Simulated assay, not measured.
Amino acid sequence: MSDTIATQLSFKTAIGRWSGLGPYYAMFPREFAFKVVENYSKPGDAIIDPFAGRASSIYAAAAMQRSGCGIEINPVGWLYGYVKLEPASKDSVLKRIKDIAEIAISITQEKLDDVPDFFNFCYSQNVLRYLITARDELCWNNNIVDATLMAIILVNLHGRREQSLSNQMRQGKAMSPEYSINWWKERKLTPPEIDPVEFLNKRVEWRYTKGTPNLENGKVILGDSTSIISELVQKVSCGECKPFDLLFTSPPYYRITNYHYDQWLRLWMLGGPNIPTWISNKWQNRFESKNAYRELLQIVFSGCAEIMETRATIYVRTDARQFTRETTLEVLHDVFPQKSIDIVSQPFKKNTQTALFGDKSKKPGEIDIIMK
């Protein structure tokens, strides 16, 4: 590892434990994001990630004296990215934890009984009371204090028993309510009795132990890249925004998983339905349609081509399976015809999109497509 990367990783640790905010897996491992930003851009450059996820690419860009702009359609990923770039002060978050607890006292038993059975199997009455109050009271989409607290709640919303707020659950995604209830009943697992204020205070203290980042050069936009990219095209064309020097992203993979469905419990916490729900938006599903998948890549990468510097670098990590690989290569070649292509194979590893879901033997890992 170069001295520059080592210095930046040390800096990242020193300013806090925020780069890893989110579930235990990441589409972009943190060290990988820093390495790509260092090797394929220079200080002062502008970086775009139209499929930002938790915005690791944008975090790395801003931490390394670049500017970064990410777009993320899933509010869970967006919230993690938004908060870790510039979280609220520790004292303000601790105060908000206490405020929510004081309001939660007034939650009636009737309101607790009004949620599906899953929630009473998953959480103790005290925790559920707190979560319902936080869900109703926190303005996570326009208030940085509320957003910071909500992000910390989401990280700990479910996972290992007594290391999270829930009964024992898979860490990455919430299983279906019926499956979970039956699993808990068979094992006679009841929700752990947790004081949510004490629990969250400890997590906040840990998160802030080494400081907080203030990465003003990074931003992540909540929305659909297919429409937001066109807005950026207009801004670049009229001089409101400078062209980008590096496109660094990892699009969703064809037929891997449905992030909206898999994150249903965290989305409930953000005000969504209280059961897993398949949604009709074709950009937020599992991409069963090859045509829809190709269309997404074509629209987004074509828009990106209009906002990139002539000598910009394109760095795309994608699935090595045949359809995803070939489709991504075809689209990128079509929209960036003058650029050369270098392909680097990435062996199958843990905590990647291909590793997280399904049969490992059927997924040959990932590839990095680098165009200059």
Rank of each mutant, 00 (worst) to 15 (best):
C241G: 00
G172I: 14
K188N: 13
R187M: 08
D195E: 15
K188V: 07
F244V: 05
V233W: 02
N167K: 10
K202M: 09
T212G: 02
S230F: 06
N201M: 07
V233M: 04
L222H: 14
P243N: 01
N182M: 11
Q171K: 14
L246I: 00
T209Y: 14
T226P: 02
G218Y: 09
S225D: 04
T249H: 01
R187K: 15
P191V: 14
Y253N: 06
P177C: 11
M169Y: 14
R170S: 15
S180E: 11
Q168R: 07
L200E: 04
L189Y: 15
K219E: 13
R203L: 07
K188S: 09
V236A: 05
M175I: 10
S164H: 15
G172L: 15
R203F: 00
K185M: 15
S230R: 09
K235M: 06
N167L: 09
F199P: 02
I194Q: 14
K188C: 03
S227H: 09
E240A: 04
E231N: 03
W206I: 13
E186L: 12
Y208D: 02
E231M: 03
I194K: 12
F248A: 03
P243C: 03
E193W: 01
Y254H: 10
E186R: 14
N217V: 00
S237G: 03
I229S: 01
R203N: 15
K188D: 14
I194W: 11
G211M: 12
W184K: 06
N167E: 05
P213V: 13
L215R: 01
K242S: 04
N201C: 10
T190G: 07
F244N: 00
K185R: 15
R170Y: 11
Q171M: 11
G172N: 13
C238Y: 03
T190H: 08
P251N: 06
I181W: 07
C238T: 11
V197T: 13
N167D: 08
T212D: 04
S176W: 00
V236T: 05
N217L: 07
L215Y: 11
E186I: 10
K219P: 03
E198W: 08
